[in-house]
Amino acid sequence: MAAFEAEYGYPLAPPTTWQEFDDMAQFFTRDDDGDGEIDMYGTDVKGGVADFEWMIAVLQAGSPGVVLDADHNIIIDNEAHVEGLSYYISHHCDMDVAPPNVNEVDWGVAENLFYQSQTAMFRFWGHAYRLTRGDSPIADLVGAAPMVAGPGGIGAIPGPWFNIVPKTSENKELALQLVQYLYDHNAMGIEAPLGLAARKSAYAQYADVAGFENLNPLLETLDSPQTIGRPAVADWQQIADEILGPIGSDALTCEQDPAELLAWGREQLEAMGYE
């Protein structure tokens, strides 16, 4: 990969910063057979999950949280949100390093693009490393690295699993016993088909086992101060669907100013009763 070093001035290695990620995304976006069509893109932009994906960049930009701070005050229009949203759309709007019809790319399509070798890098949930199919042209060629760092550091949003015992449940005691069991034996999930667990201690048990090379990068990402969960508010899903999705979608048209979209987001949150 001397070609990369010759062009960008540093050796090719898993990207650790936005700048390195952008360099590599541009380097790998290429028309291999010279027919005028891009054969491989550097990465993807998942416009199909626009209610979620751009917020990761917001944390990497240094925001103390996404949408709302720890006290549930509105921060959706702070500088880091503007910077994160602008960075999220830049791969599509400015750099053209992602398949162009971004609205159709959700988790499943992003996986397909990557496993069919149409994207060189994809930012995905940590368990995807072990889901590389054996018949994929890139089987045995996949590596995992911690999430890239923006100006604020490495940042990601963990996908917590909830076990809810409804208030109206008749067998609360039994349900709580089940939740306790799932908590105590959480590592069992790692060897299950999806390879998911909800506790860092569970991942740590497998971190040095061959075949689980994704877990140390995952733990490093989870340990970063800028890895912050979504605000724990009852109407989060409504915020995601009604406000964050439209903001992400509109921003990906490349015709609207991110700061204005986020100001609209503040108005919507205020209408929902937040301050």
Partner: peptide, 11 residues
Amino acid sequence: ADSSDISWLGD
């Protein structure tokens, strides 16, 4: 001209 010309589910 190109397979990305019509975005059936994205437009």
